[in-house]
Design a binder for these strands. Structure first.
Length: 595
RNA sequence: GCCCUGGUAGUUCAACGGAUAGAAUAGAAGUUUCCUAAACUUUAGAUAGCAGUUCGAUUCUGCUCCGGGGUACCA
């Protein structure tokens, strides 16, 4: 039982005995006492003031007295206005630390066969261009969220739906056929996804040029778009693709393979992965089928031009198109098909879609439609909606080339990490491969932490001209502290310093603060799981590391003569290191043994 | 137009309806005979505006101002 629970239960009993008020212990949440007051935990007594018919001070005093008399963990207390500040018996914290240290998986709840099965969809790229910064945020959030859910006792299936069909792919293919001159990733010495992305941009350039020429001949923009031979060719190619034309399918397959091997490389470096990948080319027909089924049941209706719609006005939304007049499917149709296949493959209890907030409306509609179509999970699917990554100039636009490429960004972060390390002389005497590994860990750590520490719902502004910080609330700051703790522990081991019994030592203020914070880890993980919040974990770890740094500067660890006191400090260091490592791994960030 | 969403120090971010709104960076001033100074200590600086709900509002409600997104045959 955690100290918070003990106090909450104590207060609950106190209130019952003193005033006859029934209060659920779970609703009493002790908070850390502000540092300008004496105490470890604080209870807000206002909720009982009215029923007790006494002043807040009197209520605080009575509850405080009751706790001192009846709860051994409570040493003393003070009351400021309506706030009851409780001081825990100092040596009690040692047993708390001992308890945490004895449980290697403290804070982690393992999943069992009966645990809920959660499917997390993230990444979901198009195959016509490389991954960019927006995808990086998506990937990191999706991966971290999955790790957190696992740590909270869920079975998790990480999945990816690859948008491998549609007009955008045909554009790249067409440009490659017309102007590619048989180039391959090997010949060009380029990652496949980048090569295809180049052709997508190339298509757009020629297309724009064509439009201008047509408009110069007196056409309006709309007319030009309709008359464009290039676009007509792309559409014809899509039609052939849908008809299963062997030549088009062959080219499509080959080029998609190039893209996938490029994506794999990016995912690997980013440290994310998937248990199961779906492709829209496999799911869009399923969706069509499902929509036609809905049409029969009267959930959808057909317009005169043959298009199929759903009327959602009764639910406060609009009419939604599901099949175009030419019978082809739209995004929504594909998502319905994908949902069907997924629930056929897995007994999913909960579905989470990690997708940008620009699609909030889409998921509102999807949830309703799945529900109407009889999918029982539809109503409470979760759209984990995150804000966009913006550049100082505004939104990133891939066709205009104003994107921050994921591969470039990672490379830049790593090389910056290497330079900074070298400047600081950190890497002297290490082998080339060790240097490389540390630069990789630190560079990616900086990037990942930068994107994960922020509330996912908020938009992020990223200025490519300003390098991501390595000081302050950053990944490298945390990694550095970890490496330093590991160094102390290594030295302790070399010197044969073992941890002995320290339970009788009276810990000082900073040591207590650290133990208290370590003890909070379990609660933070659980809360992060409930709120789907990697940011919560990130800021917890940062605070932990800051507390450790303060402790570290105030205490000799290895040089401490008293074996019991030294043991307490070594144990604190060991548990801190372990907690940092665990917390960071929930974010998908590695920590280096030295740096 | 309608719907959703955000507005907190110069900047990047915090704050289950709780105390004097916290950090970090940039600025100013210090600490190195010390287990890794990517550290630590001190200092200055903010809730867009106006009402309301109550013991108490950055948080909840309404209006105004500013930004972002969506809005039926793009994904």
């Amino acid at each position: 039982m955690s100290i918070d629970n003990i106090i909450a239960a104590g207060v609950s009993r106190a209130v019952k005995e003193l005033y006859g008020i029934d209060t659920d212990a779970a609703s009493i949440v002790p908070q850390a006492t502000r540092k300008e007051f004496e105490g470890n935990l604080t209870i807000v007594v206002f909720p009982w003031v009215k029923a007790a018919r006494k002043s807040p001070e009197a209520v605080g005093k009575e509850i405080g007295d009751w706790l001192v008399d009846n709860e051994p963990a409570v040493d003393r207390y003070n009351v400021v206005k309506g706030f009851l500040n409780i001081v825990i018996e100092p040596t009690y914290w040692n047993s708390v630390l001992k308890h945490i240290a004895s449980d290697a998986d403290f804070g982690i709840t393992a999943a069992t066969d009966e645990s809920p099965l959660v499917m997390v969809e993230y990444s979901s790229p198009n195959t016509n261009k490389p991954l960019h910064l927006g995808h990086v945020r998506n990937n990191l959030l999706g991966f971290s969220l999955s790790e957190i859910l696992k740590a909270c006792g869920n079975r998790v299936v990480m999945t990816n739906i690859v948008n491998d069909r549609g007009i955008h792919i045909c554009k790249s293919m067409l440009a490659w056929q017309k102007w590619g001159d048989g180039v391959t990733p090997e010949k060009a010495g380029k990652k496949g996804d980048h090569l295809i992305g180049d052709f997508y941009v190339l298509f757009d350039r020629h297309y724009k040029q064509e439009l201008e020429e047509l408009m110069a001949q007196g056409m309006s923009k709309e007319e030009a778009e309709k008359a464009s031979p290039l676009m007509a060719e792309a559409r014809e190619m899509l039609r052939k693709w849908e008809a299963g034309d062997p030549e088009v399918r062959g080219c499509w397959k080959m080029m998609n393979e190039w893209v996938y091997s490029g994506f794999d490389e990016t995912y690997r470096r980013m440290g994310v992965g998937f248990d199961k990948i779906y492709y829209e080319s496999d799911t869009y027909l399923e969706g069509k089928e499902k929509v036609l089924e809905g049409l029969e049941k009267g959930i959808m209706y057909r317009k005169e031009d043959g298009s199929v719609w759903a009327d959602l006005t009764a639910d406060g939304l609009d009419h939604k198109l599901l099949l175009r007049s030419d019978g082809t499917s739209v995004y929504m149709t594909q998502d319905i098909g994908t949902a069907k296949l997924r629930y056929r493959d897995y007994p999913i209890d909960k579905m989470i879609y990690v997708v940008g907030n620009e699609q909030n409306y889409h998921f509102q509609v999807l949830s309703l439609l799945l529900d109407k179509l009889g999918f029982k999970w539809g109503k409470d699917l979760v759209h984990f909606s995150y804000g966009m990554v913006e550049l100082p100039e505004g939104k990133m636009k891939s066709r205009e080339g104003t994107v921050v490429d994921a591969d470039d960004l990672m490379e830049e972060m790593v090389s910056t990490a290497r330079e900074v390390s070298q400047q600081l002389g950190k890497l002297d005497g290490l082998s080339e491969s060790e240097i490389e590994e540390i630069a990789e860990t630190v560079g990616l750590g900086a990037l990942k932490y930068f994107l994960l520490k922020v509330d996912p719902r908020k938009n992020i502004t990223f200025d490519p001209k300003e390098t991501i910080d390595f000081n302050g609330n950053t990944g490298p700051f945390i990694q550095y502290t970890y490496a330093r703790i590991r160094s102390v522990l290594r030295k302790a081991e070399e010197q044969g310093l073992a941890i002995t019994d320290y339970t009788a030592v009276v810990p000082d203020e900073k040591e207590i603060a650290l133990i208290q914070w370590l003890n909070d880890f379990a609660g933070v993980v659980a809360e992060a799981g409930r709120n789907f919040s990697p940011a919560l974990i990130a800021n917890y770890v940062y605070e932990l590391v800051k507390l450790y740094n303060q402790f570290y500067h105030d205490h000799s660890i290895l040089k401490e003569e008293d074996a019991a006191v030294r043991s307490l400090r070594l144990e604190l260091s060991a548990v801190t290191a372990r907690t940092v490592k665990k917390g960071m791994s929930l974010l998908g960030i590695k920590v280096p043994e030295r740096m």
